[in-house]
Design a protein around this nucleic acid. Structure first.
Lengths: 216, 216
DNA sequence: AGCGAAACGGACGGCACTCTCCATTTCGGC
DNA sequence: GCCGAAATGGAGAGTGCCGTCCGTTTCGCT
């Protein structure tokens, strides 16, 4: 049921041990990226995964494809969180918890998403997960506005703004990351409430494509 | 004549041409860091400054010392902006404009400050500018609270939170950076107003030392 | 068991960057 | 103008990482 048809098909042809190593590499990469930043040497990842460099390169032809794959997973998680929130009957609570969930994820991956977002080239694949998350969240926004809880001038780009902001906070402050993130999110959620709606100057021409350069 | 701080004294001994080149290097570095990120090759900076690599290294023994010096300048600018705001008779307006000014600076340096903050080792010098900025801003906060405009549970760390957040936004979004930053700042300023003060969960144990690892 | 294909790992060439060394040029006081 | 100290630039040694090549091991089907 998790559905990457083509990819799964290809991957299914992998021999059992290869598939196993692939997972190990992905895990090692996720952890390495999170703790040591995006430019950790490939060799380090390989060592951590208990495989040779060649194995790593056979599975992920370039460093970038590895990063992309890792990020793709993260993105899928976000999409799930959003869909989960869609089930919530209370529109504002849905909005709030979707935001909080996604931000908490960013805290957990300790800076990886931030590193990925701040500087990255072509990556084509996660189209689907991205769309899914974006549309789902748009729906959440729509409902929250309709219920009169979310300010009318809120736009999807504002959510991206929050995500970017949260990234900085999560990878900047070490173990304080969680508290810092929560505080920031709390502040912004307050600013997003309809009751507090005040002047608010310009609109941010910001789309996912600008946050993730790779898609352009 | 002498009796100046050691740095000035040292620098005053530089021959005229050397001092001139030093400035050129600093300018080149600022621009290079801003546009190409923190890991631009020393050679590129030297070329841009129109000097040889050796000259660069004579003036700044390590890449890090160069980065530190550039950042130190930026920090001093912030301190000035804060002191300027202190002259404002309207406490809330002072607060607001100090925040906006500093954030605008971050937009102008296009990600350099962000890059510096997100990943940096020992740097000892800017103590003074830092203190100056911090104390000045604390005073601004005090006044704004006393005037009943700034929410009572606001703390200095919240400002750092905002700075970090703003960094991410400014270097993430290219030419949209300015609009994005303004929008984010506007949202947060609204959340900071006393009138909107709402629950707001945890307090963020965050000090300048956590934002600038180098000082620890 | 036996065998072919798939997967493996480590060694290696190539490249980019940092920092040093030194022969040469430039400054600026006399 | 002259001369020593200061400053300079470029070549190059040292280092670390990327991505590939190839001889060896492991899988899994029969």
């Amino acid at each position: 049921m998790p559905g990457h048809p083509s990819q799964i098909a290809e991957r299914a042809q992998l021999r059992a041990d290869a598939e196993h190593n692939r997972e190990r590499i992905l895990d090692a990469a996720r952890e390495a990226f999170s703790t040591r930043g995006l430019d950790v040497p490939m060799a380090a990842i390989a060592r951590r995964a208990g495989v040779g460099v060649a194995t790593l390169y056979r599975r992920f032809p370039s460093r970038e494809s590895l990063i992309t794959e890792v990020f793709s997973d993260q993105l899928a998680s976000c999409a799930s969180a959003v869909e989960e929130a869609l089930a919530d009957p209370d529109p504002w609570h849905a909005f709030q918890s979707a935001v909080e969930k996604v931000c908490a994820m960013q805290v957990a991956d300790h800076g990886f998403t931030g590193a990925f977002l701040t500087a990255f080239p072509q990556a084509v694949d996660f189209e689907r997960a991205r769309r899914r998350a974006e549309q789902g969240f748009d729906e959440i926004i729509r409902r929250a506005k309709a219920a009169g809880r979310l300010r009318a001038d809120f736009v999807f780009a504002d959510f991206l703004l929050l995500l970017q902001a949260n990234c900085a906070v999560t990878d900047g402050a070490g173990d304080r990351a969680q508290a810092a993130s929560r505080r920031l999110v709390a502040y912004l959620l307050q600013a997003f409430r309809a009751e507090n709606a005040a002047p608010l100057p310009p609109a941010p021409p910001l789309a996912l494509d600008h946050v993730i350069p790779s898609l352009s």
